[in-house]
Design a protein around this nucleic acid. Structure first.
Lengths: 204, 204
DNA sequence: TCTGCCTCTTTCCATCGTCAAGATCGGGTG
DNA sequence: CACCCGATCTTGACGATGGAAAGAGGCAGA
């Protein structure tokens, strides 16, 4: 059997290729349209090849979700670093990064936000999600360093819920059905500012 | 072929039976474990019987989601009616009802919250979701009747996002991993109270 | 009674995830 | 350098799925 250089018997980077094709497939077809065989097809390998790199389709989905959390953490950090306005500005910046990542990767974000419903759970995934939570908790801490632990927790609940809930409802079409992208950004920023004000007030 | 009375050739209530078995199956197996054939099996009919009542598996899922929104609206109304404290109390009550429904039907709630990701869209589903939004908008309106339309919208964004985000993160395990149910309820009520205070402040 | 239509069953097909067996290649060992 | 072992990939198969097609059963109105 002849075999071109582009498709050697041994792929060499199959794991990465599957992650890449899988991510694209996820955004294209949605969670319920995601199939392992199509991932393999796009990576140019046979349908059974992924088995060596991922124990099951859930294992691949968990990897996608874990990398999503890594990227989400990076987006939050980047956006916070660019923000002005001290600790409060950083908290808002994290929110902006969070929303931007979700808007840019809606299906992946949805997968990450319902791994329980999709029965996904691996150590790497849990760790990646923990990192995002730690980042957020630190930002809240910086805004109200002298508040009690309970207040800090309540404010983290509050800000996390506001940001996550807003972008989730937006992506699901429950918010701003026919508004322009510009108007929606304004609504998002307005929410972030109300959120920040609430936290600041709770601290003093 | 003999056929018992319990399983006559014509079921008679198959649509309702499929909705019932489908809802149970959804909570048991999660969205990705949901299958049409298992629904049919539980309803005691052949695997092709559902086709007459639902054009596709997505059609059945959309029906489940639509009924979920109806029930969600009822839960919000009931809980608001029982609440004290005027308009503000009613808004908080709606939030309590929203969270209670989600906590009681996590998989269904997840389906409802990601119908876009699951590519579900029927008129009945959209209408049911609209009803929930209208209920919420009316409750916000009652708290700050003299505020501008924009303020009302921003506050509806804010309260909707807070409540939805909190219960979503909670059900996904991102909030309160090892806390007791009692402690989690306290955190939820604390969030609702902070939320209500923000709205009231925005109105005056 | 008979006829037509709605409902359900049976059978079939393409596709899916996973497993088992065989083919291929590359790197370490002799 | 030749060999060989194991990691990687292919092929083929199995049971299960969603959906379509064709036929059987039962009810309601003529």
């Amino acid at each position: 059997m002849e075999r071109s250089k582009a498709q050697p018997y041994h792929h060499g980077q199959l794991r990465e290729a599957l992650v890449t094709s899988g991510r694209a497939l996820l955004e294209e077809k949605g969670i319920r349209g995601f199939t392992l065989r199509e991932c393999a097809r796009r990576a140019g390998v046979s349908h059974a090849a992924p088995a060596y790199h991922f124990a099951s389709i859930d294992d691949l989905l968990a990897e996608l979700a874990a990398r999503g959390f890594d990227e989400l953490a990076a987006a939050m950090t980047t956006e916070a670093a660019r923000a002005e306005g001290g600790a409060t500005g950083q908290l808002v910046g994290q929110g902006v990064g969070y929303m931007a990542f979700a808007a840019g990767n809606p299906a992946l974000f949805q997968l990450m936000s319902s791994r329980e419903a999709n029965r996904l759970d691996t150590p790497a995934l849990a760790a990646a999600a923990d990192k995002v939570r730690a980042l957020h908790a630190a930002a809240v801490e910086a805004v109200i360093p002298h508040a009690s632990g309970e207040i800090k927790q309540r404010m983290a609940d509050f800000t996390g819920a506001s940001v996550h809930g807003f972008i989730s409802l937006l992506l699901d079409g429950q918010i701003g059905g026919k508004d322009s992208s510009r108007a929606l950004k304004a609504r998002g920023l307005s929410l972030l500012s109300a959120m920040a004000e609430t936290v600041v007030r709770a601290g003093g």
